[in-house]
Design a protein around this nucleic acid. Structure first.
Lengths: 131, 131
DNA sequence: ACTTGACTTGGACCTAACTCCAAGGTGTAA
DNA sequence: TTACACCTTGGAGTTAGGTCCAAGTCAAGT
């Protein structure tokens, strides 16, 4: 799979895909004899994983560390698990914060709705007075 | 209230508070005769609001716009409401993404837990073989 | 009056995560 | 074989959101 195909498939720019590779987030992408990237299923899997994790806000550094551990084989299983648990905890806190803010916006929007009723009434009243 | 008191109260550095003011996010903070900031209840209210919104990831630009609308008075109530509705929608999507990623991490962590059982068994087996 | 600690400003600097560009190589259809 | 779209690299530039610093002012205690 070429870089532009992957780019379209995941809606990630080719520049970003090259950047990911450069920083060690996407190691060992195969090349065609002429040097062009040729993504295989394993690469696609990583990209899909990275897209999901980045979409939730995990820092690239953390993902690089995870990839690095993965490449070191079975001896890092425990470390990888700990890393994921730690990130999950951070995401749980983020979820809480986002939910709390949504609740607050719900309330504020509701107040605006109800504040507009007397506001519109006032406008109507003024219209009547003018007539 | 002095800047350091506000800083402690909300766990926001004084530099950040000044930065917020500079970019127009916290307009019209009163000063003492000697020119030092003296935050009042209204300021405190805004800071608390900003902290909550920033904590959920709303961009500063959007908050600046909201503050600006607010200062223009009642005629912007509808616009403010629309702005909040739009941001709420974005937060809902973020919530979805974070939740989906937590679920995925739950699954991966679970796999690691179960992958480690045979891994440890293997270790134990080796131990027995060695003895 | 002097010290100490908090406050002021303007502006430079920093980090994360891209994003863009120039200069050049490749591949395929007419 | 020429045109054209697509690929390559290294490196510079961008954006958001702070963060830090120097040089100076101010306030409270001794």
């Amino acid at each position: 799979m070429t870089i532009s195909e992957v780019s379209k498939k995941f809606d990630i720019t080719a520049d970003t895909l090259r950047y990911y590779e450069r920083v060690g987030l996407l190691p060992s992408v195969n090349r065609t004899p002429s040097g062009q990237r040729d993504y295989d299923d394993k690469d696609i899997g990583w990209i899909e994983f990275i897209k999901c994790m980045r979409g939730a806000g995990l820092p690239i550094e953390v993902l690089i560390e995870y990839v690095g551990l993965f490449q070191q084989g079975d001896s890092t299983i425990e470390a990888r698990k700990e890393l994921l648990i730690e990130q999950r905890e951070i995401l749980r806190e983020k979820l809480e914060a986002v939910q709390a803010t949504i609740n607050r916006l719900d309330y504020k929007i509701d107040v605006y709705e109800n504040e507009m009723v007397p506001f519109e009434k006032k406008l109507k009243h003024n219209d009547q007075v003018d007539e």
